[in-house]
Design a binder for these strands. Structure first.
Length: 489
RNA sequence: GAGCCGCUAGCUCAGGCGGUAGAGCAUCUGACUUUUAAUCAGAGGGUCCGGGGUUCGAGUCCCCGGCGGCUCACCA
């Protein structure tokens, strides 16, 4: 939409050209020396010395010969006071061209008003930025109640800058996200892990079962994929002698979107030689504690009204035991046909009547909703875990766990399968079932196993979901700055 | 991909059974020298998401489409 069609914008554009005609640059290249608002406030009133700051004009209250305005920067908010008897006629005229949302630099002295508010009596001002587009005005009354809060999620997701400016909760959430990721890095770096970057653009995808995004590399005239996981590359590094490695980066899955799924999401994967899935439980517990601290949370986190106790050790719940207990049936021992009939009886779609998929769906149905407090579900069926080591006591199961909280899967980890012959047969069998990959297996990955990959534990952790829980976000879109949306018409 | 709900001024929202489109904030004009959701008086501002249909007449009813939200499906 053309800017001028909005009368509010047209009015601002007129003020902007009026400023230019008077020789005022509405977008000057430099800001005069200034202190952050927070520091100005800390000085307090009564010392009489001149201070300067800058920020965005967020409110304006006119009283004839005086004007009050609120100025804010990322560190805080301060009230400005303009008195037409005390400022120059030029400044008073300039003030008439300042709109809500404009950024200004001001200088003056601090005093306290009758109402007891610390205020800067302005004696000098320059315009730093003329805001051409008005932003919604949100008011907060003396009891702290917010009026006219912008509630249109489309507007807030599409124009995240508006959301960040208007919603302190959202702003804090993204600051916490940054702190959490920094804390995760600091924790792993402190243990001697090295952070690496592996390919996002791949000619063969793997490491998870998900539909990839497909693209084309023109130079090679070849189809390429965006990665769905980093697993197979990081394990090559294990074989290559990087015994503690991790990567934090985006994975892409061409699947549906919901409260906990985004097509583009941030995953931490870490691999640690000479460890196993039990070692990964300890890593997970420590990562959660460190992250909660980074988000300013203690041992208890309230998520969507439920209190989660973040105090390790988290209980271990064997997959099969939980499934049998919650369903009241020995489902793991059912023949595939009987399992399919049982699932169909519950209204669970059984199009892909494969036993592994059914077990997983039944687990999601019976067990996952009840996994509110942090816990580990352990010993997943081997059929669901092609890259995990078999359980020595029961080869139908694997040394694997998934971590859950608030019914959300946060992490997946196992003792990594490093038998190259067994791994090859599993992957080849799977490739036959999976038509999309047309029988291809990742030979480079198998090459690394053949060379010898140390026994190791590996952990994949959904960073967005961890941030959701620690910042009480109801949707993954609330913790992704620019979530995927359809194009605006 | 399916079902349900929503879309009205820049923002938040009203619009009974189909009969000339409303409020608060924001904007503009005027008043006001310590206000703070400032106040008071006045004014302007609309492709009622888009298209089609029914009707003398549609923001309102019907159909198709767009975008969003929720739920489901998909996601080892």
């Amino acid at each position: 939409m053309a800017l001028e069609r909005n009368p509010l914008i047209a009015g601002r554009l007129e003020k902007l050209s009026a400023l230019r005609e008077n020789g005022v640059d509405p977008f000057p290249p430099r800001t005069p020396p200034r202190l952050p608002v927070e520091q100005v406030r800390a000085m307090g009133s009564g010392h009489g010395s001149e201070v300067s700051t800058s920020g965005r004009v967020r409110a304006r209250r006119e009283h004839g010969k005086t004007v009050f305005a609120d100025l804010s920067d990322p560190t805080g908010r301060i009230q400005l006071y303009f008195n037409s008897r005390e400022v120059s006629p030029e400044l008073w005229r300039l003030l008439g061209h300042v709109d809500l949302g404009d950024m200004i630099w001001v200088t003056g002295t601090l005093f306290t008003t009758r109402m007891g508010e610390l205020t800067l009596a302005v004696s000098g001002m320059t315009i730093l930025v003329k805001a051409v587009r008005p932003m919604p005005v949100v008011k907060v009354d003396s009891s702290g109640e917010v009026h006219d809060a912008v509630s249109d999620p489309d507007l807030l997701y599409r124009h995240r800058c508006v959301d960040l400016l208007l919603n302190p909760v959202s702003r804090k959430r993204f600051e916490d996200r940054s702190r959490i990721i920094s804390a995760v890095r600091a924790y792993l770096d402190g243990l001697g892990f090295i952070e690496v970057e592996t390919p996002i653009l791949q000619q063969l995808y793997g490491g998870a079962s998900a539909e990839p995004f497909t693209t084309k590399y023109n130079f090679l005239d070849r189809e390429c994929y965006l990665r769905i996981a980093t697993e197979l590359y990081l394990k090559r590094l294990l074989a290559g002698g990087f015994h503690r490695v991790y990567e934090i980066g985006k994975d892409f899955r061409n699947e549906g979107v919901d409260r906990t799924h985004s097509p583009e999401f941030t995953q931490l994967e870490l691999y640690e030689a000479w460890s196993d899935y039990r070692g990964m439980m300890a890593r997970f517990e420590e990562l959660v504690v460190v992250s909660a601290e980074a988000a300013g949370k203690g041992g208890e986190v309230v998520y969507q009204g439920r209190t989660l106790r973040m105090e390790p050790p988290f209980p271990r719940i064997p997959f099969v035991d939980a499934l049998h207990e919650k369903s009241g049936e020995k489902l793991f021992d059912f023949e595939p046909d009987r399992l399919a009939r049982f699932a169909a009886g519950l209204g669970i779609p059984v199009e892909s009547a494969a036993r592994p998929a059914l077990l997983d769906k039944l687990f999601d149905h019976f067990v996952v909703p009840g996994l509110v407090q942090p816990c580990f579900v352990t010993d997943y069926p081997a059929e669901l875990s092609p890259l995990a080591k078999r359980n020595s006591s029961d080869p139908r199961l694997t040394e694997r766990f998934e971590a859950f909280m608030a019914g959300i899967e946060l992490a997946n980890a196992f003792s990594e399968q490093n038998d190259p012959l067994l791994q090859r047969s599993i992957l080849e069998a799977q490739a036959v079932e999976d038509g999309v990959r047309q029988g291809e297996v990742d030979e480079e990955f198998l090459y690394a196993l053949e060379l010898g990959m140390p026994p190791a534990g590996g952990l994949g952790l959904g960073v967005d979901r961890l941030v959701m829980i620690l910042t009480d976000a109801g949707s993954i879109r609330d913790v992704i700055l620019f979530p995927h949306l359809r194009r605006e018409k």
